[in-house]
């Protein structure tokens, strides 16, 4: 579902004014994106669901004080990500918190059934490709997820992860380069 920038902004303004239809519309549009991302970060259906609920309640209650973002999608993903990580952070032991940044909790894994099926490619090769994806560094996987799975622009990816545009380009580039320079390149050329 894609909404033009203009009506996206109207939607946001209506939401800020307390319009419940706008809230429903916003929720229906972004729930799938947030839910999928949440599940990738934390594989617990109930907790992800609960965090989405609380996130929207929080947005609704604070609506009058919210700023109008350039991109609602990246704004929501960013705040939700921060919230979910904070939630996960609280359930970790003190020692674990010391050892790892919350950011490193994001360990996105892809599965074979999430790769588009192309007839000329065998199951075996699809498995090889997914293994290669999952072997990338965590940060690269998250950038890949946001850019190609969620179809965010590079600028939006940068926003979600609070990194520079240049940083997002470099990370995506490194990932693509790593996939392309793999020795099984000829076999995976169907994907990339």
């Amino acid at each position: 579902m894609s909404i033009t920038f203009h009506s996206d902004q109207l939607l946001w303004n209506a939401f800020k004014a307390g319009n419940r239809d706008a809230l429903s519309n916003l929720f229906k549009t972004y729930y799938p994106i947030l839910y999928r991302y949440g599940q990738k970060i934390h594989n617990n259906h109930h907790e992800v669901e609960e965090n989405i609920q609380e996130f929207f309640l929080y947005l609704y209650e604070r609506r009058a004080r919210l700023t109008t973002p350039d991109s609602i999608k990246s704004y929501l993903l960013k705040s939700f990500r921060r919230r979910l990580l904070n939630h996960l952070e609280q359930s970790r032991s003190h020692r674990k918190r010391m050892a790892q940044y919350a950011d490193q909790l994001v360990d996105i894994q892809f599965s074979v059934d999430e790769i588009m099926v192309r007839q000329e490619v065998s199951d075996h090769i699809r498995h090889i490709f997914v293994d290669m994806l999952n072997a990338l560094p965590k940060r690269q996987r998250e950038v890949i997820y946001l850019r190609y799975y969620d179809q965010l622009t590079i600028a939006e990816v940068a926003q979600v992860l609070s990194i520079s545009y240049q940083g997002a380009v470099n990370t995506a580039y490194k990932a693509i380069k790593a996939l392309r320079t793999n020795e099984t390149l000829s076999q995976i050329s169907a994907f990339i």
């Binding site: 809230l23 429903s24 929720f27 799938p32 609920q53 790769i115 994806l133 990339i192």
Partner: peptide, 23 residues
């Protein structure tokens, strides 16, 4: 060109029931 992902479908009943809960 990127990577051809096929995002998981979220059933519309799940969205509807989550929205109901929120409201």
């Amino acid at each position: 060109k990127g990577i051809p992902f096929e995002p998981r479908e979220i059933p519309s009943e799940q969205i509807a029931s989550a929205l109901f809960q929120l409201n």
